[in-house]
Nucleic acid binder design. Structure first.
Lengths: 223, 223
DNA sequence: ACCGACAACTTGTCTGAGGTGTAGAGTTGC
DNA sequence: GCAACTCTACACCTCAGACAAGTTGTCGGT
């Protein structure tokens, strides 16, 4: 049935199994699950492990356990948290979404950037050009620059979307940097400088193109 | 300090305590928490209980545990509800974000649309051209078409973002339609047909431009 | 300088024992 | 017959200990 589930933590597998049976309608909304001991034997894991699986689903808002009473289904479909979605999907999908958001934001920023925005972007650019001791540190200064660009678009929705991506992108970026450090650091820094300059010059088309080119480069590096 | 926390399950209290310390910045994004045994003693609960607390936060996407390595902070704040954000911001901001997402999705759809996607889009287009009794009904068929386009991009993140916008956009659209009905209905329908045709012809540039033109038209109509 | 073995961590899992709270069966009184 | 009470069985909750499995850093040999 689900051969892919035969990996990782047992608790995670158990949670997956439970969720599958819930979505299949075995225990409808509001109904009670069998007891811990029964269910643990049925799934083939220890009680503690099953309890952790239940906690995981409780954290996602699917189950609720009441002492002395039982464990109940309180939501058949996961109110899929943004973080949860992003962790599930591929990095490529996330980068494509970043292209959509950041390219548009760069174009809007070229229209609307204030002198204050420009100072913030150039400050972030300078910090990015400095020396960095770890992949984490570099990822942070890079993300900070990108965030300043989106902030300069003065569009709250785009900024909120960007912030939603940050955790996921940061992890992926650090992994990538550790596996394969940036080949041509000078060119990379120059590309970012060009983006800031295009925004400074109030050139939406070039700004969008800079952003798009950079991110498709990242996309290529990851595949 | 937190008298209200002295109730309910111990595991829930522990999770609350952890979340508080995380949000206070004690363990920044991406950093490792102390070991389970250490933390359990520190908080004053058993190790199993602490593990359940960690699972609960893991289910919420705050923590991630890696065997042999440790438990890490992967998201300091739980994502603010989309509905709340979107209600707060202006309609103009939302439309700009829609441009970003839908134009990119249209371009990707032009690359990736399958015959099945095409059928779905043309079916939605046909339903949109039919007669509609209410503004609500028209808004729904319009949104359905736009959604099919984004779905044809085969990018889950973009689709998820679009779905997040739907409720807010729907309300704004109905209000607008009641205040000022569409002037040239024929031209409006033709613009949507052109978008679908561009995707059918696998022309990303034209598809993106159609989408962008349509939405900026909506933007203008609202201001 | 490189590399492999090892040791000292980490989290993952299971078991068994008590504790606490709830719901329902059984009893009692009217 | 019916309502209220008591009590017991069963549910989840918590802890402690033991061992398995994975990761990381160290230390010695080459």
């Amino acid at each position: 049935m689900t051969p892919a589930a035969q990996q990782g933590r047992l608790a995670a597998q158990a949670a997956e199994a439970l969720l599958g049976r819930i979505r299949a309608g075995e225990w409808p909304l509001g109904h009670k699950l069998p007891g811990e001991t029964t269910l643990a034997v049925e799934i083939g894991v220890g009680r503690s492990t099953l309890r952790e699986a239940i906690r995981e689903l409780a954290g996602q808002g699917v189950l609720e356990s009441r002492q002395g009473s039982g464990v109940f289904v309180i939501s058949t479909d996961i109110t899929e948290d943004w973080d949860v979605v992003l962790r599930r999907v591929s990095v490529a999908s996330v980068i494509e979404a970043r292209v959509a958001i950041e390219a548009e934001a760069a174009a809007l920023a070229a229209h609307r950037r204030t002198p204050s925005d420009l100072r913030a972007m150039r400050r972030a650019l300078a910090r990015r050009s400095g020396s960095h001791h770890s992949a984490e540190e570099f990822a942070d200064v890079d993300m900070a620059l990108h965030r300043e660009v989106v902030a300069a678009s003065h569009n709250e929705v785009l900024l909120e979307l960007f912030d939603g991506f940050v955790p996921r992108v940061r992890v992926a970026m650090i992994e990538m940097l550790k596996l394969r450090p940036i080949q041509d650091y000078e060119a990379d820094q120059a590309a970012h400088a060009a983006l800031v300059e295009a925004i400074a010059e109030r050139d939406p088309a070039v700004a969008a193109e800079c952003s798009r080119a950079h991110l498709t480069g990242v996309h290529r590096a990851l595949s």
